[in-house]
Design a protein around this nucleic acid. Structure first.
Lengths: 232, 232
DNA sequence: TCATACGTGATAGCAAAACTATCATTTTTT
DNA sequence: AAAAAATGATAGTTTTGCTATCACGTATGA
C-alpha cells in the first residue's frame, strides 16, 4: 500500500495563500472538513477551527478570506477530483454506454472506491458536498464569483458529462441540463434518503448510494435511449 | 376586479404569534419578502427588517423565533399556495395527462397566472423560493424540524404530484423521486439560466419559465411514457 | 366604566461571529 | 549570517442574534 500525493490545481482566486503548499495550510483543509461535517456550515467558524488545530484565528484568515471561500475551495477540490477520476477511468473504456454508466457511478460517489490523499478525508468531504453543496452558488455573490472563474471546475465537469451524453445520443436536446441534473439529483436523493425519506424511493435501509445510482441510471437511460427497454 | 383574501393554514410551530392575524404581522410578511429579495438570506436580519417597517427588532422576535423559521414560514406558505392551486385546477381536468401537464406548469411558476393576496407579493416570493429554496432543509436542524412537521406541506405537495404520475403510469417505479426532482429541477434551472447558464439549455434570452416548463415536460413524458413519441 | 391584560415601540445590553491590526518570534530563503 | 516570510498571541471593531425591561396605548370584559 503506497501513499501518493496529488496536488489538484485550484483556481488561485479562492485563497490568499495556497493551502496545499504548507503544513498549516494542509491542516486547515483537513480539519475544516472534519469540523464542517461535525457542526454544519452555520455553526462552523474560523475561531473554532483555529482552536481545534491549535493555531490562531488570524492565521487562518491569511489563507482564506472567509468561510464561504474556504467552502468553495473544498468544493472545487471535490469537483476537480471527480473529473480527474472520470478522465482516468474513461481512458480504458471505449463503449459510450459503459462510459456513461461509469460516470454516473462516479457522480454518486467518487469517494467510495479510491486512493486516499493524506490531508483530505474524501468520505467526509463527500458528506459535506451532499449536505451543503447547494450553498456553493446560492448567494448574492454568485455572479461576481462566477466572473472570477470560481465555478469553472463545476461547469467543466458538467460539460464533460454532457459530451458523453451526446456521444450516446447526438440528438438528445438537453445534454447540459441532464448533466447538471444528474449531478444535483445524486446529492439531493442521498440527502433525502437520510433526512426526508418521503421525497424519494431510495431507502435508508440498505445501500443508499447503490439505490441512488440505480435510479439515476434508470432516468438517464430512459431519457437518452427512448426506444430501448431498460437493460440492467 | 375583486380583491379577496385567503388565509392559508400554516403549521403553528413556525411562529410565536400568528402573523396573518395582525397588522404588524402582515407587514412583517410583506416586507420580509421584499427585503429578502433585495439582500439575500445571509445579509437579511431582523434589525434591518424592523427599521424598514418602522418597528422594533424585539417586536419581530415576538412573531418569529429567528430568521430561519420566518423563511420556512414563507416557504410553507408557497407550498400550500401551490397545492391549493393545483387542487383547484385539477377539479376541472379529467385526463391524467392533461393534469400532469397542468401540474408542471404550476410547479414552474405558480405565481405567473394568479390572484393577488394583499400582503404577499407572489412574484417576489417565487424569486426567493428559486434563490433560497434549498436552504429550507439544508441545515443541522432538519431532523428536528421535520419531526415537528415543518416540511409536511412540501411532502404533501410532492405526494400529490406523485399520485398523478402513478395515475398516468401505474408501473412507474420512482413516482416520489420524480415528483421531488421536478419540484427541485424547476427552481434549479430557472436559477441556472440566470446565473450559471452553461449548466442548462434554458437560455436567459427569451422566456425562461416557458423553456424550463418545456424541458420538464420533455423529461416527465419520456420517463413516464417510454413507448410513445413526444407529443408537444 | 374601571381595571386589567395585551400588543407595541423604545432603549439597553450581552455573547458570539466576522473580521483587522500589531508585534514579537520562529522558520525559511538566499 | 542577513533578509524575508510565516506564525502565534493579543487585542480591538463592527455586526449579528437574541433577551430583558419598561412605558404607553388600546382592546376586553366584569
Amino acid at each position: 500500500m503506497t501513499l501518493f500525493s496529488i496536488e489538484l490545481s485550484i483556481n488561485d482566486k479562492l485563497y490568499q495563500r495556497d493551502p496545499q503548499r504548507t503544513e498549516l495550510g494542509r491542516k486547515i483543509l483537513k480539519h475544516s472538513i472534519l469540523l464542517l461535517d461535525e457542526l454544519g456550515l452555520e455553526h462552523f467558524n474560523f475561531r473554532k477551527l483555529a482552536e481545534r488545530i491549535g493555531s490562531a484565528e488570524a492565521s487562518i484568515y491569511r489563507y482564506f478570506e472567509n468561510k464561504h471561500l474556504l467552502l468553495l475551495y473544498l468544493f472545487n477540490w471535490y469537483w476537480e477530483w471527480m473529473r480527474f477520476h472520470i478522465d482516468m477511468k474513461a481512458m480504458n473504456i471505449r463503449c459510450p454506454k459503459e462510459k456513461l454508466r461509469m460516470m454516473i457511478s462516479c457522480i454518486v460517489d467518487t469517494a467510495r472506491r479510491n486512493a486516499r490523499i493524506e490531508f483530505i478525508d474524501e468520505d467526509v468531504l463527500h458528506r459535506i458536498v451532499v449536505a451543503e453543496g447547494a450553498k456553493a452558488y446560492h448567494n448574492k455573490g454568485v455572479d461576481a464569483q462566477n466572473e472570477e472563474g470560481l465555478f469553472h471546475a463545476y461547469k467543466s465537469l458538467c460539460n464533460r458529462i454532457a459530451s458523453v451524453i451526446l456521444e450516446n445520443n447526438p440528438d438528445f436536446p438537453y445534454p447540459r441540463a441532464l448533466a447538471s441534473s444528474l449531478l444535483e439529483m445524486a446529492n439531493k436523493h442521498i440527502y433525502f434518503a437520510e433526512h426526508l425519506p418521503l421525497l424519494t424511493e431510495a431507502s435508508n435501509e440498505g445501500n443508499v448510494l447503490q439505490q441512488v445510482e440505480r435510479f439515476l441510471v434508470f432516468f438517464a437511460w430512459r431519457l437518452i435511449f427512448p426506444h430501448e427497454g431498460i437493460l440492467e
